[in-house]
Design a protein around this nucleic acid. Sequence first.
DNA 1: GCCAACGTTGGC
DNA 2: GCCAACGTTGGC
Length: 152
Amino acid sequence: MKYWIMKTEPNVFSIDDLKNLKVDHWEGIRNYQARNFMRDQMKKGDGVLIYHSNCKPPGVVGVAVVDCEAYSDFTALDKKSKYYYPKATEEENPWMMVDVRYVRHLKKEVSLDEMKNHRTLEKMNLLQRGNRLSIMEATKKEYEYILKLGGL
DNA sequence: GCCAACGTTGGC
DNA sequence: GCCAACGTTGGC
């Protein structure tokens, strides 16, 4: 079992939206590294930290689990979607997504600033310079530590 | 809104 | 297959 951090912009899709839907497909990933994580490594039941980016303050806001393994991201084929990818066809669509199931909000958000203040987290992928991947792996230790900081 | 740090594209 | 130009991300 692995642990992940998945970023989302709350004004586009927030943890509250996920809570309302209970389960949703994580569409629109258009980066090969992030896709490879989903395609090759994500398994049903993996732990997911939901991270809000591009907001004040950015940080981890809740917990989810991977609900199924990766399958074709149909939004790449949808001309009306903002994630439309002209090169994709039914037969050859490079993009994939997983389903993510809401678990719970943290009692208290763990902001990016706060994470930077804990030595336990200093090696976290999320905190490395220049890392803009929207999906990143976290260790069990980091995952549990963030839950603790978040009051769970 | 700025801009550093990437990732992608496309001409050659 | 190189690499310049361009686009995107996301903290600040």
